[in-house]
């Protein structure tokens, strides 16, 4: 059951990822990216990483992508400008190269860790476990990220003010 889900979700994720880069209409790209993010969230859920699953939906699919789609809609691109954004020879070439490199990298990393198992369950993906890890082992990076975010928030407020 879970491996069937895994395959469905992976196919959806990969297909929508390809659509994201191949569509010339930016809105279609953004929508494909949303679908891709949701599919990846589903993969987290099959690994019983429930917290990660929800956060992926909440933050990426629910908030970030809405913003992206919004900006695309407000840009009001014309058909002609959209065409220019589509795939072209050099772009396909470079992105294929990168893709091959990444796949090779992943295959190499996999061969070290003994076999390919699509549904190896994570130990415990609950919020409590995630919190424990973040606030013990990774407390230093966590605080750095918080300061970065705080700086970003202050920056937004400053930029949002009518006069500096």
């Amino acid at each position: 059951m879970e491996s069937v889900l895994f395959w469905i979700l992976s196919v959806v994720a990969v297909a929508s990822a390809v659509l994201t880069v191949s569509r010339s209409n930016p809105l279609a790209s953004a929508l494909s990216l949303t679908v891709c993010l949701v599919a990846v969230a589903g993969l987290f859920a099959t690994l019983s990483a429930h917290f990660l699953f929800i956060i992926q939906l909440l933050v990426y699919a629910g908030a970030v992508m809405v913003l992206v789609i919004y900006v695309i809609m407000l840009l009001n691109l014309k058909e002609r400008e959209m065409k220019a954004l589509g795939l072209s020879g050099p772009r396909v070439f470079v992105s294929s190269l990168v893709a091959v490199f990444v796949v090779a990298l992943l295959a190499r990393a996999q061969s070290g860790s003994g076999g390919f198992d699509p549904v190896s369950p994570v130990l415990d993906g609950s919020a409590r476990r995630v919190a424990e890890i973040i606030f013990t082992s990774y407390v230093y990076p966590f605080e750095v990220v918080s300061i970065l975010l705080l700086a970003a928030v202050v920056g937004v407020v400053v930029l949002g003010m009518k006069k500096f």
Binding site: L27, T34, H50, I54, I55, L58, V66, I69, Y70
Partner: peptide, 25 residues
């Protein structure tokens, strides 16, 4: 049955924005 049920509710409500955005645009 999710052990983060309440966040699921929030995630679903955040998806409701898509309906408005796509309908409007």
């Amino acid at each position: 049955t999710l052990n983060v049920g309440i966040l699921f509710v929030l995630a679903v409500t955040s998806f409701h924005v898509y309906a408005v955005v796509f309908g409007a645009w």
